[in-house]
Design a protein around this nucleic acid. Structure first.
Lengths: 239, 239
DNA sequence: TTGAAAGCGTTACCAA
DNA sequence: TTGGTAACGCTTTCAA
């Protein structure tokens, strides 16, 4: 049987209410009472029950994290790392992350992630290019949303974005400064805004250095064609 | 305000207890009552509260998933995919997965994952080579454990393992049958039992084909040295 | 500054 | 086959 708030209360000679107040760092608790309670908590190795707490406070202590299945299992661990950081941070704030993947072709009427239906989360983080149909459904659900590395074309939401253009410029400029002139750009889904922006930066840097991009392409078809098939060749977007 | 079991009960003209029985697919409920209740559930879009359920049933509906931080962020998405499959399966069984990473150098006395302390999980899946100190602590905690792709040297636990030796043999044999004779083995942490086993298989296949592995090594030092530094060279284990 | 008690939504036991 | 009711462990309000 797990240790409950009552056990702590008994041990510290106070009421459960007082223990709760101490846990929530309530002000008006005498410092002696507080330390007595904290001691009891430590000695009994007490940890509040999530369920009980959630039931009364109406907070699950969970944050949802939605990723497209093909983004998560990709070779590039980009979103994996974003998840990693998210979990690490949430841990510090005593939250859990519920990660779920959704199919890239999520259709209207498809089941929403269960944590949304059950309202078992207090907010949802969407990483990457999530299908718009899903995003709309989530918006309608009224759950707080945060977008990472992508956001829907219209609307006004909290986002965490990378300055992809600047990144593209930086990377390219660095190579140019190293004396290189024949610089390739290997991308994933070029339709993805982030990647497209990096490509913009890449081209801007080339332009600034007066390197003829178009010509380079023509001379190096062979290299480009040797890319793995799941990478889009940059020529795809050259009209 | 969310829909509760009482709302459903009222709508279906039964007691909350009956609704609960229907949800849990209890036998002794007349089929008409059942369908009436199910209809109400659907119409109200009712989803039971995890917290309330957890409080009384003492089941969190969560499964812990522990991974070493360096394994999760690796370029190779091996464990990522295992997690993906786990989450997918758990989803079907109405469970959530709480993923957390632990440092590769987890030391005795370090904080256990919070979901363990809070007993917010019903069992834990350990993927990959988890530090023994952590494993011991988990074993002592009495939580049900399942190991994936690795298990501690002694003890008797449920494991999910790959036949790595056979895999090593298969891969190598395939290349040999394609007519190749100079076959390299690129590995991650060669101390990892799984990788070591694959290497055994590799060597067995070479031996069977009468390919002189040792000699091959000597002739190809340059190739081996060009591997990225976070890969161990096979020569490391050549005494 | 502290405590008593109500109530959160569900399950499970016992009656009906 | 169904319903009433007492828990489950915690928070919060109100009173002491």
């Amino acid at each position: 049987m797990a240790v409950t708030i009552k056990d702590v209360a008994k041990k510290a000679n106070v009421s459960p209410a007082t223990v709760s107040l101490v846990i929530h760092k309530h002000q008006r608790i005498s410092s002696q009472t507080r330390s007595r309670v904290l001691k009891a908590i430590k000695e009994l190795n007490y940890h509040p029950s999530r369920s009980a707490r959630g039931l009364v406070s109406r907070q699950s202590g969970n944050i949802g994290f939605i990723l497209r299945d093909d983004h998560f299992s990709r070779i590039e661990p980009f979103y994996t790392k974003i998840f990693l950081g998210t979990e690490f941070q949430a841990r510090g704030d005593e939250y859990y992350i519920l990660l779920t993947t959704v199919p890239a072709d999520f259709k209207k009427g498809d089941q929403l992630p269960r944590f949304v239906l059950e309202r078992n989360i207090e907010g949802v983080i969407l990483a990457g290019k999530i299908p718009l149909t899903l995003i709309e459904a989530l918006i309608n659900s009224g759950i707080p949303l945060v977008f990472v590395d992508y956001y829907p074309p219209n609307g006004n939401y909290p986002v965490v974005m990378i300055d992809n253009i600047a990144g593209g410029i930086q990377a390219t400029t660095h190579l140019i400064q190293c004396g290189h002139r024949r610089i390739a750009f290997i991308a994933g889904d070029i339709e993805h805004p982030s990647i497209n922006e990096r490509f913009q930066g890449y081209k801007m840097a080339l332009e600034k250095a007066r390197i003829d991009f178009e010509n380079w392409i023509k001379l190096n078809q062979k290299v480009l064609f040797s890319l793995p098939s799941h990478f889009h060749r940059i020529t795809n977007i050259q009209g």
